[in-house]
């Protein structure tokens, strides 16, 4: 994966660059707004990470400029933690995802993976299949090994999100935002509770486990190996 990070804070940029290189990805770094915009316009990237506050040209303007120039590389927008409104503005400007600083590298990586490997064809498939697990989104039915599984609406949403992102690590925060629309950090085990309920229905009655916990990162749904 080839990633561009536009970030003027040296330590944040180094932190991201170090992590991406360890994971075997290519990285370009721009320390100012104009420099970043030029790189993003002239080279192809699998994902672009843009900070909100930049010298020369702010992050929002870069996002808008890229989108109006027809560049469709996935964009992750970095906001300050108190910037509740920045997030909405960033998404409205055309960013695909946002992340509040300070963030954990695993969180950024999970989001980059979720965005970069998104296949443009697989937009709203009505039938999702992962191994022997099958979901009909329209009829709202789930089967595994041909056996029907009864799910609550919120369990269905959780499973649908995991199946659409099969093979990718989904962090706790990603699940909270996408499945429950919670934009804060709960002080109880909301995610753990719901994932374990889903597991008891999708995995427990069967031989193999599809939903796995990645310690310190999140969850992943995959074809059992």
């Amino acid at each position: 994966m080839k990633v561009l990070i536009i970030e003027d804070d040296r330590s944040t940029a180094d932190y991201v660059a170090g992590g991406l290189k360890e994971e075997g990805h290519d990285l370009d770094h721009a320390a100012s707004g104009p420099e970043g915009l030029e790189l993003a316009c002239t080279r192809d990237y699998d994902a672009v990470v843009i900070d909100r506050m930049l010298p020369g040209l702010d992050g929002l303007s870069i996002v808008r400029a890229l989108r109006s120039a027809g560049r469709d590389a996935p964009i992750i927008f970095l906001t300050s933690v108190s910037g509740l409104d920045d997030r909405v503005e960033g998404l409205e400007a055309g960013a695909d995802d946002y992340l509040a600083k300070p963030f954990a590298f695993s969180e950024l990586m999970a989001r980059l993976n979720a965005l970069a490997r998104r296949s443009p064809l697989r937009k709203e498939d009505a039938v999702l299949k992962v191994g022997d697990l099958e979901m009909n989104v329209i009829a709202r039915q789930v089967r595994r090994q041909g056996q029907a599984i009864e799910l609550q609406p919120r369990e269905f949403r959780l499973l649908e999100y995991m199946m659409r992102n099969r093979g990718r690590v989904l962090t706790r925060t990603m699940l909270l935002e996408r499945v429950w629309d919670f934009h804060f950090d709960p002080k109880t085990n909301v995610v753990e509770t719901h994932v374990s309920r889903l597991r008891s229905k999708v995995d427990k009655p069967f031989e193999t486990e599809m939903i796995r916990t990645i310690r310190g990162s999140g969850y992943i749904l995959n074809v059992p190996s």
Binding site: V81, S82, G83, L84, A100, P102, F184, D185
Partner: peptide, 14 residues
Amino acid sequence: AIETFNALLRVAQI
């Protein structure tokens, strides 16, 4: 510690 900071900033922003 970061969480406490975040919560403080959020309260202040609200």
